[in-house]
Amino acid sequence: MLHDTGQFLALVNPAMAILLSLCFLLAWNHERTRHYLLELGACYLLYAVAITLQIIWQPRNDGGNATVTGALYLGSAVLMLRGMLARIGARVDTCALVSLPLALFAALAWFDFMQPQLVARICILNIGIALILLLGIAPLARLRTGSTADQVLFWVFLLFALHFLPRTVLTIAPVIGQDAAALTRSAYWLWLQVTMALLLLTLALALLAATTLDVIDGLRHERDTDPLTQLHTRRSLEALAAREIPPPQGKPLSVLLCDLDFFKFINDNYGHSAGDAVLAQIGRIIAAGIRRRDIAARLGGEEFVVLLPDTPPDAALHLAERLRQTLESTEMDVLPGMHTVTASFGVATLRPGEDLEALLMRADNVLYAAKNKGRNCVEWEREAGLPVLA
């Protein structure tokens, strides 16, 4: 009776693994660019097949059961590791990832066919799976500095990998002197499977939660990032500016507006694809020329803005001039005969009680003054008493 009940309850384990595998495969079907979901789905499917075979395929004297199920377990561990690493764009040494499972498989086959030893197979399989998973701990350590979901995922994965070491002892202790069939008929074996199921479920939930946050972050990035220049959109600028305005007491905040000169001429004479290439290069130049905390955005068309927290007027003015000179001296390969583009800049500094819209309006007025002055220059609010650039 215990045997029949144990087998029935043990089948809950592969059933749960199949369900989790379907969750990963459905997620991959929705997010085809996240290939790691396919590997994780295959990982849980292999595990489900392995544990099912172990339950229904009773060991024989001539071997075979342990070799087949062991190969499936090892393959599942490799897929788990590959999926975890692929999610963060990391890799592990290919030689180690191939040679270690092959060596473990060969050892399992030896102690299954040539010198049948249950204890040896238990040690090889459990310690081997732990070693395979631990190959990824170094690259996965970066998750500890990520989001809460990433941190939880790292520690759950580490616990899952390390638990195979005490599991080896816990599995061996009650079966010394017994055969494999006796182990699979015991209540103790059922308990081991239940603990494995709980750990696999916890790891799967952590992975699915992290994946959900990945998708949300991807959608947020798509919403907040201009696809052409990779700078912030106006909506993103407004959201980020709300955190900076009003600035801390006594801290200045400045803004610079940049508008490309004669951009319509570029589109009309070189085509919109050339114009897009110019805008993309301008975006890279601006992103490379500002600080990490500065907020650069494309307002639309050929107009750009950079919000400069903790930046006094003179520092903002010098940044604008430096960007102007960089643009003027950068060759545009897509513009034969013209080669370079120029831009006009307007600089303004936040006044007490002012919001982003008012600040941008004043900067826009200054920008028009730069255009009227002849373009390819930097203008600022002269009443602010800023020094004139030499």
Rank of each mutant, 00 (worst) to 15 (best):
H3E: 14
D4R: 13
D4E: 12
G6W: 07
G6K: 11
M16P: 00
I18H: 06
L22V: 13
N29W: 11
R34L: 13
H35M: 10
H35Q: 14
Y36L: 02
Y44W: 15
L45Y: 08
V49D: 00
Q58K: 15
P59R: 09
N61W: 08
G63C: 04
R82G: 00
M84I: 04
G89K: 13
G89Q: 13
D93G: 09
D93V: 07
W110T: 01
F113S: 05
I129Y: 03
I129K: 02
L131H: 04
L133Q: 14
L134E: 06
L135W: 08
I137D: 09
A138L: 12
P139T: 01
A141K: 15
L143Y: 08
S147V: 12
F154N: 06
V156A: 14
L159T: 11
F160E: 03
L162V: 13
R167Y: 09
T168P: 01
V169A: 15
V175A: 06
G177L: 08
T184N: 15
Y188N: 01
W191R: 06
W191H: 08
L192S: 08
L203M: 14
L205G: 01
A206E: 07
L207M: 13
T211G: 07
I216Y: 10
T225S: 09
D226P: 05
P227M: 11
L228Y: 09
L231W: 03
L240I: 03
A241H: 08
R243T: 10
E244T: 05
P247E: 06
P248Q: 06
P252I: 11
L253A: 02
S254H: 04
C258G: 03
D261G: 01
F262W: 15
F263L: 05
K264Q: 07
N267G: 02
S273E: 10
G275T: 00
A277Q: 12
A280T: 14
Q281D: 07
G283P: 00
I285M: 11
R291M: 03
R292Q: 14
L299V: 13
G300L: 12
V306S: 01
L308Q: 07
T311Q: 07
A315G: 00
A316R: 08
E321A: 05
S329Q: 15
P336Y: 07
H339S: 05
T340W: 04
G346E: 03
G353Y: 10
L359V: 05
M361H: 14
R362Y: 09
N365L: 13
V366Q: 06
Y368M: 01
A369R: 15
A370K: 02
K373A: 09
K373P: 01
R375T: 00
R375A: 04
V378G: 05
E381Q: 14
L386K: 05
